[in-house]
Amino acid sequence: MWYGFEIGAKLSTVAGTTCSNNGTCVPTERSTAAFWYLEYVARDLTANITTLSRAQYDQLYLTLKKTFAGSVEASEARIDRFHEAGGKMITYHGLADPSITPNSTLRYYKEVSELVPNVTDFYRYYRVPGLGHCWGGNGGQPVHLFDQLRQWVENGTMLEASPVTVTLPINGTMDEVLCPWPKQAVLQQPCANATSTLDCWLCR
């Protein structure tokens, strides 16, 4: 019915559960998703949505789409006028996002790409491994993208690579870069004489 979550997303957040260190998980009283369904779709805070049949679940989903797609769904891919007016846009999405699935944003970028020629002339999309819903996680916050957008708008210069600092499993950090989709960051070897993080990486 819709895209699933990526590896690395905290499904306990999605499902509204609390997990202990031994791996035991129990549902909380109300998850965000359950609240949406009870409050805005079923319109019955006492409804039991843990025993829905497949048909009932499908109906809840379709009702949610029908009611809220027009106000909360970013689905307008015909942005020719934005492009013609000289607009520039950068989108990023954390691949560990437990609230909005990253592939929905990728779908939108692909739809724009199919409708507007030379999409990278005005629109870049970055996927951020390990980043949660806008922030959090080990993937590194893409704090430089706004300055890059400003430079792109004001000076017409757009750097593809955007530096991030990621947290390593051994509690250290490492400087890496993000690349606009579908390119990937490739570490150059050797890189001993580099003057900055960007010099060590290429977007391919």
Rank of each mutant, 00 (worst) to 15 (best):
V128T: 10
W181I: 03
V164S: 01
V177D: 05
T173G: 02
G23Y: 11
A74W: 04
P142I: 09
L178H: 10
R43F: 04
S196W: 05
V143P: 00
L168F: 00
W181Y: 15
L64G: 13
P182A: 08
A85G: 09
G132P: 00
C25H: 05
P142Q: 06
P98I: 01
I170A: 08
G87H: 11
R30I: 07
P180V: 13
D147C: 05
Y61I: 13
T157V: 15
Y125P: 10
W181S: 11
W2Y: 08
T17E: 13
T18C: 11
P190C: 11
V41N: 07
D147Q: 15
A15Y: 12
G16F: 05
N22I: 08
Y125E: 02
S75R: 14
A74H: 08
T157A: 03
A33F: 04
Q189F: 05
S99I: 03
T173A: 05
R107I: 05
G70L: 08
A42N: 11
L145M: 12
R124Q: 13
S113N: 09
R78V: 07
T63F: 02
N48G: 03
Q56C: 06
Q148K: 12
D147P: 01
T13I: 14
T67A: 10
S113P: 06
T157H: 10
Y109D: 06
E160D: 14
V153N: 06
N103T: 13
G87C: 06
R78F: 07
L168T: 14
K66I: 00
Y123T: 12
T46R: 14
P129A: 01
R81F: 03
A15L: 09
Y3L: 05
F35P: 00
R43M: 06
E73K: 15
G70Q: 09
G4D: 14
V112W: 06
L45G: 01
V166S: 00
Q56W: 06
K65A: 02
G136A: 04
A77C: 09
M158S: 02
Y3Q: 14
F5Q: 07
C179D: 08
L187Y: 08
A85T: 05
K10A: 05
I90H: 05
D175N: 15
V112G: 10
A42Y: 09
L95T: 11
I90M: 09
E160C: 06
H144A: 10
S75I: 07
V128W: 13
V186E: 13
E6Y: 06
A33V: 04
A96I: 02
T173H: 00
